[in-house]
Amino acid sequence: MAVFTPIELSEISPWISQHFNIGEATDIRGIHGGIENSNFFLDTIQKGKTQEYVLTIFERLSAEQLPYYLELMRHLANKGIPVPKPIENHQGEILFSLKGKPAAIVSKLPGISRLQPAAKHCALVGEMLAKMHLAGKDFPQSQENLRSLGWWQQTIPLVLPHVNSSQKYLLTNELATQEAFFASSNYDALPQGASHCDLFRDNVLFDPNSSNDPREDQLGGFFDFYFAGTDKWLFDLAVTVNDWCLADNKQDLDLARCDALLQAYQAIRPLTKEEHASWPLMMRAAALRFWVSRLWDFYLPRNAQMLTPHDPSHFERILLSRRSL
């Protein structure tokens, strides 16, 4: 994704050979698109066979926070959920230091993104999201979603000086609504566990099985777990629906996509009565989370190679749409 810490093949090659049993590094390429970490495709060759990995240098997360994400991926991969699996070094470690920053290498999933998903793709995502939630029930570690209510309360005052009066009202009014929701008995009763919390279209791959026909796609896997946390599963579902099930106007819900995703999810894990009652407010919570995040990245950016901040107004429009449900 974004590259804040550049690295060359001449630097990474001896480091890979010294610390890992994945062969010789033959190429490294920065990945464009995100805004949190420095990400690279890493190619290696071992006994004549080429392998592909993803190297991440973490720019915001601390070494103390990172074991949760990496161990969660390892746990889910061992349960058969298609997610990147962290690669161990010679000492059996999956978290290490590179250029003075925490870093990890994970397996690269097969497939391609479908940025214009059909209902079939939404159903595949909903089914696997439910399976992922259940597979994580016995994950022993817990770490709060670092971009939840407490972060909104800290960040909204920082972005308010940069927005107009109607946006200030919307931010403060919605925050107050969410504070009341999070303090409610309904919210407290919602089931929770390990959640992805960022399952957008560009964080899912589909394997076309040698066919270019999207109707033949199978799910390749979920990746980019570095916003994951122990949270309400309904929040994870709402984040996913808000991106995957958009109508052509990019703000309202497409009913065919939405029905396909929710029905597939509930075929694996039916929602509780508290979840049904909380759905409208949780959809708003999911929209607010990403509007605040994009405002923060847009108005308070960091320098990075290949960095393209997302348009904050996208989630402002989604929030307005969800408030009208």
Results as ranks from 00 to 15, higher is better:
residue 24 E to P: 05
residue 69 Y to N: 14
residue 24 E to M: 11
residue 122 C to R: 04
residue 198 D to M: 03
residue 42 L to M: 03
residue 132 M to R: 04
residue 295 L to E: 15
residue 111 G to W: 11
residue 321 S to Y: 07
residue 321 S to Q: 11
residue 307 L to Q: 02
residue 199 L to Q: 02
residue 304 A to H: 06
residue 219 L to D: 03
residue 170 L to P: 09
residue 107 S to N: 08
residue 212 N to H: 09
residue 185 S to I: 07
residue 60 R to M: 14
residue 269 R to C: 00
residue 183 A to L: 11
residue 11 E to K: 05
residue 156 I to Q: 10
residue 175 L to K: 01
residue 304 A to W: 00
residue 243 D to L: 03
residue 317 R to F: 09
residue 247 A to C: 04
residue 146 L to P: 03
residue 15 W to A: 00
residue 196 H to Y: 05
residue 322 R to T: 00
residue 114 R to N: 15
residue 171 L to W: 09
residue 61 L to H: 15
residue 206 F to W: 10
residue 100 G to S: 05
residue 87 I to M: 10
residue 196 H to W: 04
residue 190 L to E: 02
residue 75 H to M: 15
residue 23 G to W: 09
residue 139 F to L: 02
residue 40 F to W: 13
residue 304 A to L: 03
residue 101 K to E: 05
residue 265 Y to M: 07
residue 21 N to Y: 00
residue 139 F to R: 02
residue 99 K to M: 11
residue 303 N to G: 15
residue 46 Q to H: 15
residue 229 G to V: 09
residue 258 C to P: 00
residue 152 W to C: 11
residue 171 L to M: 10
residue 306 M to L: 15
residue 164 N to R: 07
residue 72 L to E: 00
residue 236 D to A: 14
residue 5 T to F: 00
residue 229 G to A: 09
residue 133 H to I: 00
residue 323 R to H: 11
residue 3 V to A: 01
residue 322 R to A: 03
residue 30 G to P: 13
residue 283 M to T: 09
residue 279 W to D: 01
residue 172 T to H: 12
residue 310 H to T: 06
residue 104 A to I: 00
residue 281 L to H: 08
residue 296 W to N: 14
residue 36 E to F: 05
residue 256 A to G: 08
residue 39 N to S: 10
residue 215 R to N: 14
residue 217 D to Y: 08
residue 8 E to A: 13
residue 237 L to C: 07
residue 34 G to K: 06
residue 157 P to F: 09
residue 313 S to R: 04
residue 309 P to S: 02
residue 311 D to L: 12
residue 219 L to G: 05
residue 28 I to C: 02
residue 300 L to E: 12
residue 233 W to E: 14
residue 79 K to G: 08
residue 164 N to Q: 05
residue 30 G to I: 09
residue 18 Q to C: 12
residue 3 V to S: 08
residue 237 L to V: 14
residue 121 H to P: 07
residue 143 Q to C: 04
residue 106 V to G: 02
residue 244 W to L: 10
residue 268 I to R: 07
residue 103 A to Y: 06
residue 3 V to F: 01
residue 17 S to G: 14
residue 79 K to C: 05
residue 170 L to D: 08
residue 225 F to G: 08
residue 239 V to A: 00
residue 79 K to H: 14
residue 272 T to N: 01
residue 206 F to Y: 13
residue 177 T to I: 12
residue 76 L to K: 05
residue 237 L to W: 08
residue 113 S to K: 14
residue 75 H to P: 14
residue 221 G to K: 11
residue 178 Q to N: 12
residue 315 F to W: 14
residue 165 S to R: 12
residue 115 L to C: 08
residue 267 A to T: 10
residue 171 L to A: 09
residue 29 R to Q: 15
residue 257 R to A: 02
residue 210 S to A: 10
residue 272 T to M: 02
residue 257 R to N: 10
residue 82 P to M: 11
residue 114 R to M: 13
residue 291 W to A: 02
residue 47 K to H: 15
residue 117 P to W: 00
residue 317 R to W: 05
residue 97 S to H: 13
residue 222 F to E: 11
residue 154 Q to I: 06
residue 180 A to D: 13
residue 123 A to L: 03
residue 302 R to W: 03
residue 274 E to K: 10
residue 54 V to Y: 07
residue 137 K to E: 14
residue 207 D to T: 10
residue 173 N to P: 01
residue 75 H to V: 15
residue 80 G to A: 05
residue 197 C to I: 12
residue 241 V to F: 07
